[in-house]
Design a protein around this nucleic acid. Structure first.
Length: 420
RNA sequence: GGGGGAAUGUCCCGAGCGGCAAAGGGGGAGGACUGUAAAUCCUCUGGCUAAGCCUUCGUAGGUUCGAGUCCUACUUCCCCCA
């Protein structure tokens, strides 16, 4: 669908050449608005977690490009209202309902992320943040049915891919989930009325919901609304972006150390480097083309740049440089880097002696002493770079080197244990 | 309303004649090989104060020396008939 259309706006051409575009309801329409700087676009974010992780980065970068290319105003919509209903797509049992306090706390955490990527303010391309709790919690059920609900065609909803699939597979589709679509559609109309919002963006799984919102707008008399989605990202080997065994790749230093964030990108697969540079950095296309062309082990240089740039966006240039330096010392020089993630423990405890099993559990490299034992058996644990073979060994002050004990799992994961 | 199925290792899928910490995958972790990559090969993948002990097969009881397995009730889901 993108092959025949030639965008004239910086915004759309950037999105296309960088791989952000999956589907768009009307390329020419969006292109014209972008060129005139008259787009007002929103993306919704659930408030189910205390922060965002790499999985949301594509959406955030789309807003960033919107701002950078002068296409218009991006709106970050916090799903403070919809989250109270609970996201029903998690098919399993008791999805815990979050309390209002939790949702508010999550909202604050998520909101903080955006200030790193976007400039907020009142100017025409300044970003705006709002929360759908502001209007959704005030809705009256009967009024909503009369004014909004009558515009929804169950027939059409049944035909939507997301619904059809569930029905065909005999999977549960709750009433709430049906309503979720309606609320999201209503958000779009509401944002149009309040802010003149005319474009909703999101991941490709949101296409149905977004189009439902466009349709609702048409029936309720808004100007023409548009939809644009980004592809759902997986790594080349098919894994979901943003998840590792240790958990999600959070965009918050408290939840994932800057060094670990840097490492996440550094460990990208060869085949992903170009794609990731385009999506997750601001580097110009010409430079990315050069980096992507590096062959063999030289592509490691491109991975470092990817890690530097991606980390700088979230954690600042200084944080990225420090992470790079830590990695350089650790991997290239084989020297102890005191900037590795560090866990402290009371000096008295170390003087008394800490079992190695407990120590590895304590720093979080393994989940249990059982796992620690297994890792020792397969030679996976090291203390100060020496492979650990005796599970009954203890750590004492004698193990300190430069004031810390370096504990490692495998070749890549290192934590420093520091008495205080 | 009637009849018939199903729920398994707290990541997922999935076998399981009354002796079961429970087959096999996927995913994940470690090791080997490399370039902090991929592919490939090997090992591991309930917890603990560890030759032992404890907790796991939808929930609650029961039969039994012994229950994931048999019985009863309940919950949830699916299919067929109405």
């Amino acid at each position: 669908m993108t092959s025949t259309f030639r965008p004239t706006s910086d915004f759309l051409s950037t999105l296309i050449e960088r791989g952000f575009l999956h589907q768009c309801s009307d390329m020419a329409g969006v292109d014209a608005l972008a060129k005139a700087g008259k787009l007002v676009s929103y993306i919704g974010f659930d408030c189910t977690a205390p922060s965002l992780h790499v999985g949301s980065l594509v959406q955030i970068m789309m807003m960033r490009w919107m701002q950078a290319t002068g296409a218009g105003k991006p709106i970050a919509l916090m799903g403070g209202g919809t989250t109270r209903v609970g996201d029903p797509s998690g098919k399993d049992e008791s999805r815990k309902m979050l309390t209002i306090e939790q949702i508010d706390a999550n909202k604050d955490g998520i909101g903080r992320i955006f200030s790193k990527f976007l400039t907020f303010g009142t100017g025409p391309t300044d970003a705006l943040m709002t929360d759908n709790a502001e209007w959704l919690t005030k809705l009256n059920y009967i009024d909503f049915l009369r004014d909004v609900g009558r515009h929804f065609s169950v027939n059409r909803m049944m035909a939507m891919d997301s619904v059809k699939m569930r029905l065909e597979r005999d999977q549960e589709l709750s009433f709430i989930e049906f309503n979720y679509m309606c609320l999201q559609a209503y958000d779009y109309v509401e944002l149009n009325r309040s802010y003149g919002c005319n474009l909703q963006m999101g991941g490709s799984d949101q296409w149905g919901n977004i189009v439902t919102g466009m349709d609702l707008g048409r029936r309720m008399g808004t100007p023409q609304l548009y939809a644009l989605t980004s592809p759902l990202l997986t790594t080349s080997s098919g894994a979901k972006m943003g998840k590792t065994a240790a958990g999600a790749v959070w965009l918050e230093a408290d939840m994932l150390p800057v060094y670990d964030y840097w490492q996440y990108w550094r460990n990208s697969e060869d085949a992903d480097v170009g794609r990731f540079l385009r999506l997750f950095t601001d580097l110009p296309m010409s430079e990315i083309a050069k980096l992507e062309a590096l062959a063999g082990s030289e592509i490691n240089e491109a991975k470092k740049i990817l890690a530097n740039e991606a980390t700088a966006l979230v954690h600042g240039r200084a944080g990225a440089e420090q992470a790079a330096e830590t990695a350089r010392k650790t991997f290239e020089e084989g020297v102890l880097a005191d900037t590795l993630p560090t866990i402290t423990l009371p000096a008295a405890e170390l003087d008394a002696g800490v079992g190695v099993l407990a120590a590895f559990v304590r720093v979080g490299l393994v989940a249990s002493t059982g796992e620690a034992r297994r890792q020792i058996k397969s030679g996976g644990l090291r203390v100060n770079d020496a492979t650990l073979s005796d599970e009954r060994a203890t750590l004492t002050a004698a193990n300190l080197q430069e004031g810390v004990v370096k504990l490692s799992l495998g070749k890549k994961k290192h934590v420093l244990l520091k008495p205080e």
